[in-house]
Design a protein around this nucleic acid. Structure first.
Lengths: 147, 147
DNA sequence: TGACTCATGTCAGTATTCTGACATACCGTG
DNA sequence: CACGGTATGTCAGAATACTGACATGAGTCA
């Protein structure tokens, strides 16, 4: 079972568990978003846009942890479907500020409810203190990794 | 900055932070594995195989959080390159037990060193207590999500 | 035994994301 | 002002992962 030595202990590896938790969260989100005709990436983009209107393609990409090329094709699709709008010309530089349309806001609302239910389920067994701890610890990990 | 109401607070959302941490970890792993001609998925597969020899395609898929179809093409590649072996015929049922070859073990060793350095960096700012806490909390999240 | 359910390995096609590349616009320093 | 460095939007092609589908083998139950 626990043959020590060279490998990395999967059972006690924070990295492995991080991946597992992230994967479980993504799957759970997909499950609740699918009936709404929404995907995780699209939702992430819309939610980000709702909180910070006018974000550019590159900024959205960084906020959703994909490349700006991927975000670009996503935005083109969202634009075609009328969920977001971008001005035909950049007001300044090359940056195109993106905004939600009423349709996009509508779609996001339903998705947010679904996602919130998932997040609540995820946090069900945790006290407020533990949640705060988790926040602090995860932030520390991100900081260390990016350094 | 903090326009409350409909959305999910990104700054304080454990879900978002989980994704961010997982993404940062993956990027950091890719960075150290690339010089070795290794990818994260391949490493995960080999590491799993080192700890639990004889795992089947489907079991490896579950352990690395991909579909069994994806794992299958990965295994075929690893087999072609001589890093793993599978018997031509299933000893029992359809399950093909997979094993590392000496070449595979060799490749894994270097990768493990690299990955361990990343994991150590990630945990740099955390006490042992905090690491144990994180483990406990993440496990709770996974359990709640899968329920 | 036979029927049913479930899990597995695998093929094929699709979808998504990435890497590479290019032109362009800002911004600092000399 | 000129210029190198950096960031952006976008196109194209490659890599990767996924969904759908099928045949097969194991286990269960009547």
């Amino acid at each position: 079972m626990s043959q020590d030595g060279a490998g990395i202990h999967l059972e006690t590896s924070l990295g492995y568990l991080l991946k597992e938790a992230s994967s479980a969260l993504r799957t759970a989100m997909e499950d609740v978003l699918r009936p709404l005709g929404m995907t995780v990436t699209r939702y992430s983009c819309l939610e980000l846009l709702a909180q910070r209107p006018g974000l550019s393609n590159s900024e959205l990409a960084r906020g959703t942890f994909v490349t700006r090329q991927s975000m670009n094709v996503l935005l083109q699709a969202l634009e075609r479907e009328g969920l977001v709008t971008r001005p035909p010309e950049a007001p300044v530089g090359k940056v195109l500020p993106t905004r939600l349309t009423p349709t996009g806001r509508k779609a996001l609302e339903k998705a947010t409810v679904a996602v919130r239910s998932v997040e609540l389920r995820m946090l069900a067994g945790l006290t407020d203190d533990e949640q705060a701890q988790a926040l602090r610890i995860l932030r520390s990990m991100v900081r260390s990794l990016q350094a």
